[in-house]
Design a binder for these strands. Sequence first.
DNA 1: CGTTGAACCTGTTTGC
DNA 2: TGCAAACAGGTTCAAC
Length: 314
Amino acid sequence: MPELPEVETVARGLRETILGRRILSVRLNKTDFIDDPAAIERNVPGRRIEAVERYGKFMLLRLSSSSDNDSGASLLVHLGMTGHLVPKPAAAPSEKHTHVWFALDDGRELRYTDARRFGRMAYLAGKELRDELQRFGAEPLDIDDAEFARRIRGRRARIKSLLLDQSVLRGVGNIYADESLWCAKIHPARLGSSLNARQAAALRRALQEILRKAIHLRGSSISDFLDAEGEPGNYQLHHRAYGREGKKCHRCGALIRRAIVAGRSSYFCPCCQPAPRGARALPLPKRVRRLPPNWAESRRLSAGRNAKGGAARL
DNA sequence: CGTTGAACCTGTTTGC
DNA sequence: TGCAAACAGGTTCAAC
């Protein structure tokens, strides 16, 4: 589910709702997605949430230091594909697949729910934390043309693979990789080293514009993304490539195609995004893929929220 | 270096 | 209708 814009949306929401709260206690259900469950039970209770930051697709809950050398001690939360982190009144019934409850000092609980448990949670401080964060690449919203070109044009891997590689850029996932490649008219199977400076610059610009706009619209809700208020995002209404196999390209009218690149479904316009040698799209399916279950619901909410601009059609 | 496929786990959609 | 296969926005690891 969550890529950079979705995680940013959740982080902003939490910043407004739980900043400054003290965590009184922790309750755990399944723990196979937690690095060291005992470390959380031991270190988190009694701490205050002093900041909520996003780092790539991670959320960092910065905790007040309890004593010694644990300054900057943080709770790292990665939502995986189906994770939700939402504060609820302690009396509210817990959703299915809730695995962590942080009791707050105001009668609420910050709850982590994750059906697939592809997420990750860890308590990290000091060098452990620094080492963990160091593994990741540049922040996509901050990177400049020179740095972007350095990280992309020197590589022989496919551009799609590079965009998804968290040690190259932190926070880009399948949706925003495809959307920015469509916008910059670059085929996902192109090699990083095959892009000229102009194309790299166009891609960096497309990526940043799309991420900013997606954050503005509170992320994309394809099936089950919900922000920290339990609301879906609206950016899925602006997708130009992702999930649009067999539909018309908004630029040229050709039918959007799908191919597996870097092991992931990749959507592109065969006309605007010319394929490198050997890259082939999958045959178009007989029937267009069905819309995700809460599409109508998302559209309804977006209609209310963005009253002015007729929401783009899928 | 880079690619591919499998694995982690559950829910939903698709295809026969 | 029913059931099995395919698929899902993520990451990691082994094997080649």
